[in-house]
Amino acid sequence: MKIGIATPTLFQVPAVASAWERTAGVEDVVTVARAADEAGIDYLTCAEHVAVPEEAAATRGGTYWDPLATLSFLAAHTQRINLVTAVLVLGYHRPEAIAKRYGTLDLLSNGRVVLGVGVGSLKEEFDLLDAPWEDRGARADADLRRLREVWGQSSVDGMRYDPTSPRTTVPVWVGGRTVRSLRRAVELGTGWMPFGLGRDELAAMLARFDLPDGFEVVLSPGGTLDPLGDPEAALRKLRAVQEVGATRATCTVDADSAAHYAEQMAALAALAQDLEDR
């Protein structure tokens, strides 16, 4: 099981965000990204919301850095860590535009992009962007098929897309919390990245499908981990999601500064290696 991080500061969900993130700046984000890269963390993430209703911000948070701009910037400050959109809302973009914009990032980062995608859940945001809300699931399926057609292709249907990704395929992790999202992931993606589900629910849903070889199950251990202060508790949480079927774990660590977060990630990487060795 590989370890990634829900990058602090970039999206601040009140239930898990640390106090230091509220005043953190660009240099703090760079510190965390570089430290994750150096520690051998597999990936970092950035979510997408253009705007969040005030009443929803109390639970979802109201701070969301733009994933394309942010991941492009962090690509220039790192060497090997994968760059994951978690998640990109399909209904806000044409698949051709995703292929062009994130394909360019894939080129610039030497093939480190992972597209985490979802159908979206905030009607107010859809309305703000004049994006159709009804039947967004069916449209997302069609968009994923189209994205697979155009990704990494210089020319499609008489249209040129240069420059584009150096790869003709890209990892696609589908977000969601329903059986339909898992079916979409199995049929049209390379992995599933659920949220808000208990271990029993996850196990039952995964058991309903014959997962393809190499299919990624990307889970969160839940809450925050404290690898330096309580390594055994962190190991128990990691082991628990591994037992459910996780191939990758997206983690949040407890910290009081960017420097402390970097120290925690080094300890987290060591724990992940210990888990593998056991």
Score class of each variant (00 low, 15 high):
residue 271 L to V: 11
residue 269 A to Y: 07
residue 197 L to R: 13
residue 148 R to G: 07
residue 134 E to H: 13
residue 118 G to T: 05
residue 92 Y to S: 06
residue 177 R to A: 09
residue 9 T to Y: 10
residue 107 L to K: 09
residue 39 A to V: 13
residue 266 A to T: 14
residue 174 V to P: 02
residue 26 V to G: 00
residue 7 T to S: 13
residue 159 M to A: 13
residue 19 A to Q: 14
residue 242 Q to N: 09
residue 44 L to T: 06
residue 107 L to W: 08
residue 181 S to V: 03
residue 59 T to C: 00
residue 18 S to W: 05
residue 135 D to I: 02
residue 270 A to T: 13
residue 92 Y to E: 11
residue 6 A to P: 00
residue 184 R to K: 04
residue 269 A to N: 11
residue 136 R to K: 15
residue 210 D to G: 01
residue 14 P to H: 08
residue 80 R to Q: 13
residue 203 A to F: 03
residue 118 G to P: 05
residue 96 E to I: 04
residue 172 V to F: 03
residue 12 Q to R: 15
residue 209 F to T: 00
residue 276 E to K: 15
residue 95 P to Y: 08
residue 123 K to W: 04
residue 4 G to N: 08
residue 266 A to V: 11
residue 239 R to L: 06
residue 203 A to R: 15
residue 201 E to Q: 14
residue 44 L to H: 02
residue 58 A to G: 14
residue 249 A to H: 09
residue 75 A to W: 04
residue 181 S to A: 15
residue 147 L to S: 08
residue 110 N to V: 05
residue 164 T to Y: 05
residue 62 G to S: 13
residue 182 L to E: 02
residue 221 P to H: 06
residue 41 I to R: 11
residue 18 S to L: 01
residue 151 W to D: 01
residue 145 R to W: 02
residue 106 D to M: 09
residue 31 T to S: 11
residue 168 T to R: 15
residue 262 A to E: 07
residue 74 L to G: 07
residue 242 Q to I: 00
residue 112 R to N: 11
residue 88 L to H: 05
residue 53 P to A: 09
residue 249 A to M: 12
residue 50 V to D: 08
residue 121 S to P: 03
residue 57 A to I: 10
residue 231 P to D: 04
residue 180 R to I: 00
residue 4 G to K: 06
residue 200 D to T: 10
residue 185 A to R: 00
residue 241 V to A: 06
residue 114 V to Y: 05
residue 26 V to H: 12
residue 46 C to I: 04
residue 231 P to E: 03
residue 13 V to R: 15
residue 29 V to C: 07
